[in-house]
Computed example of a mutant assay.
Amino acid sequence: MLNTKGMRFPIDVILVCIRWYAAYPLSYRQLEEMMQERGVFVDHSSINRSAMRFLPLLEKMFRQHKRPVGGSWRMDETYIKVKGAWKYLYRAVDKEGKTVDFLLTA
Rank of each mutant, 00 (worst) to 15 (best):
E37W: 13
R8A: 01
R67E: 01
M75D: 10
L104E: 09
W73K: 07
K95A: 09
K98E: 09
L31R: 07
W20K: 14
I14A: 03
S50M: 02
V16M: 12
E33P: 08
Q30K: 12
Y90P: 08
V42Y: 08
L31E: 11
L2E: 12
T99L: 05
S27G: 14
K95Y: 01
Y90C: 09
G97C: 00
T105I: 04
Y21P: 07
E33D: 11
M75A: 13
D94E: 14
A51V: 10
R91A: 10
G39H: 13
A23S: 12
I11F: 06
D12I: 01
A106K: 08
D76H: 06
S72G: 05
R29W: 04
A92W: 06
I11P: 02
E59G: 11
L103F: 06
R53C: 04
R49V: 02
T99Y: 04
P68I: 04
R91G: 08
K95H: 08
C17F: 03
N3M: 10
N48W: 14
P25L: 08
F54P: 01
K83H: 15
A85M: 15
A22K: 13
D94V: 06
A23N: 13
E96R: 11
V40T: 13
L103D: 06
W86S: 04
D94A: 05
K83T: 15
A92K: 09
L55Y: 00
E77I: 08
E77L: 01
Q64F: 11
R67P: 04
R74G: 03
H44M: 00
E37L: 15
K83F: 15
H44N: 02
E77S: 01
F41E: 13
A92P: 03
L89Q: 12
K66M: 09
Y28K: 06
Y90D: 08
M75Y: 07
Y21A: 03
S45R: 03
K5G: 09
K98F: 07
E37D: 15
L26A: 12
S46T: 15
C17E: 00
Q36N: 05
E96A: 11
Y28R: 06
V100F: 00
M1G: 15
Q30P: 07
F41T: 14
L31A: 13
F54Y: 14
Q36R: 13
I11D: 10
L15N: 02
L103N: 06
L58G: 08
W20S: 12
K81V: 15
R53N: 01
V82C: 10
I18H: 00
L58F: 09
G70I: 01
Q36E: 10
G70L: 02
N3S: 14
